[in-house]
Design a protein around this nucleic acid. Sequence first.
DNA 1: TATGAGTACTTTGCGATACAAGATATTCAT
DNA 2: ATGAATATCTTGTATCGCAAAGTACTCATA
Lengths: 109, 109
Amino acid sequence: MIVENVKSQMRKGLLEYCVLLLLRREASYASDIIADLKKASLIVVEGTLYPLLTRLKNEGLLGYEWRESTQGPPRKYYCLTEKGETFLSDLEMAWEQISDSINQLRNNQ
Amino acid sequence: MIVENVKSQMRKGLLEYCVLLLLRREASYASDIIADLKKASLIVVEGTLYPLLTRLKNEGLLGYEWRESTQGPPRKYYCLTEKGETFLSDLEMAWEQISDSINQLRNNQ
DNA sequence: TATGAGTACTTTGCGATACAAGATATTCAT
DNA sequence: ATGAATATCTTGTATCGCAAAGTACTCATA
């Protein structure tokens, strides 16, 4: 068993939350999102992010618009919908509960 | 998309960490582990926990011994191995890094 | 000595999703 | 034209939480 594998598992479910957090701040496109996550020490690859964005869009949590780039092909900028903001609020609570639970277990030695 | 579904995803990878945390404190068997996790507001069911314990045992992170019960069939008490303790230390770091990352994203508005 | 309740462990099948790897498309400089 | 850089999308694999069903042990009681 490899620690990297477990870290990957930990990211599951949390990634969705992180992406929504980023998009609440401002509309953004895939490469920027990956860069922002990397800044926060969260490694994500394209093959993970693109399907995730499509999933969230299909659920009505994200919308998008094409914007021309000064260099390269046009970019798909995603942004939170109203439904997405509500959902993010739910995730905030879920995160707080889970991180509280874990800290409780950590201190319970 | 349902919040429960996402919370279930969040538990992935974290559950392993939580179970190891509990077993570092003292040897325990499945029903007790489930009860302890429930105390920390982490819902887990048997169908999740038993395969997880078997996985960790097969990886050499856990050992176990049978103990008679005063009521009912014997119980399988799991405990951390030396390898398990090392692994748990790695998970501690992984958790701190990920929760730091998320808190960083949350405050970055 | 059956029988049923309670407790404990195990297995099977399904759905969700991170990731690697590769494919496709657009733009621009040379 | 052509190739490099930038973007998006798709396919296949492995992992894991969970529901549900199955197996097995113990003990009280009829």
